[in-house]
């Protein structure tokens, strides 16, 4: 009995997005990265339809974190007070494709640092590394609205990926990102309807959809990853179905979420294996799962987890 043909052709595809501006395009980046472009579901059809290779952005915090578990912090003890050196280490030693500067230190409940600090960190990291940057807010709306527009301005012309903007707080950052020529991250709380809504809102402000990357929120392995997993699969199917409001590449925050998990941190857990192995494995497995659903940029933290995931990506997206 001959095997029937199963070729499915889709009306739409995931947008292709290029981050970073080199000298020729008015920036100072030495390289750019391109993500997206998938024309099928993960492992659907042929490898030619898989689009660009997913990439890993390693987190650099704007100020020394005080709550990182030892197994994670020990990789960065020498650079935690210098975001520039930290970024350099991620690129030169750990093979990061991108750097994501996470402005935790500006949060009022953390160190409440000011805009001048954030601008300074942005400039220093831009100087230290040549890869494109992601600039990620603290999560406190009021403070982010004060600080992030200045961060955007400090990176003007560099075509960074900046965010996040949410359904109830998007105007300030969307406007300035548009003016400064950046790409924008729209953020929804594991809710596909809100994900579409926020894209409509920024589009209504004149922000080009082809410069948007979506963040659906991430659940770590064992802590709600199934919700993120299914939303990413549905987002991909919507994009393939031709829904322009859902055709953006997706970013996920694996590092932060997976290192909150008990399995990554608990030292005294008989039978679970050494916590030194468990943490990186939890982070890597969270990333691997989301790659099966369809994500384009993965924020990560531990170099060993990054190596595992990069190896996987290289096996699949050859």
């Amino acid at each position: 009995m001959p095997v029937p043909e199963v070729k499915e052709s889709f009306a739409g595809s995931v947008n292709r997005v290029t981050l970073g501006a080199t000298k020729d395009s008015g920036g100072t980046r030495t390289s750019t990265v391109t993500v997206g472009g998938a024309r099928n579901v993960v492992y659907g059809g042929s490898i030619e339809e898989a689009g660009e290779k997913p990439i890993i952005a390693m987190d650099v915090l704007d100020s020394r974190p005080d709550d990182w578990p030892d197994a994670l912090a020990e990789n960065y003890q020498d650079v935690m007070d210098s975001p520039a050196d930290w970024a350099k280490k991620c690129i030169e030693q750990f093979g990061a494709d991108l750097i994501c500067v996470k402005f935790d230190g500006i949060h009022p409940d953390k160190q409440d640092l000011d805009a001048a600090h954030a601008v300074n960190v942005t400039k220093e990291v831009l100087k230290a590394v040549g890869v494109p940057l992601i600039l990620w807010s603290s999560g406190n709306d009021e403070k982010d609205n004060q600080v992030m527009p200045k961060v955007s301005e400090a990176a003007k012309g560099e075509n960074v990926l900046i965010g996040t903007v949410k359904e109830d707080n998007y105007k300030a950052l969307t406007a300035i990102a548009l003016a400064d020529g950046h790409h924008l991250i729209t953020h929804a709380p594991l809710d596909i309807n809100i994900a579409k809504q926020i894209n409509i809102l920024v589009s209504d402000m004149g922000f080009p959809l082809e410069k948007v990357v979506t963040f659906q929120a991430t659940g770590a392995l064992g802590y709600g990853i199934e919700y993120a997993y299914s939303i990413q699969e549905r987002q991909r199917l919507a994009a393939l179905g031709g829904d322009k409001m859902m055709a953006m590449p997706a970013i996920c925050d694996v590092g932060y979420e997976s290192w909150r998990a008990k399995e990554s941190k608990l030292a005294d857990a008989p039978g679970w294996g050494d916590v030194k192995d468990r943490g990186p494995m939890w982070e890597a497995t969270t990333a691997i799962c989301l790659l099966q659903a369809g994500v384009d940029i993965i924020r990560m933290r531990h170099p060993r987890a990054v190596a595992t995931v990069k190896n996987f990506i290289n096996q699949i997206w050859q």
């Binding site: 064992g222 399995e263 039978g271 679970w272 294996g273 494995m281 497995t285 799962c289």
Partner: peptide, 13 residues
């Protein structure tokens, strides 16, 4: 064991 705990959790999820 450190390899199985995440694989089994992924399966469960």
């Amino acid at each position: 064991p450190y390899a199985f705990l995440p694989m089994l959790t992924a399966r469960m999820n």
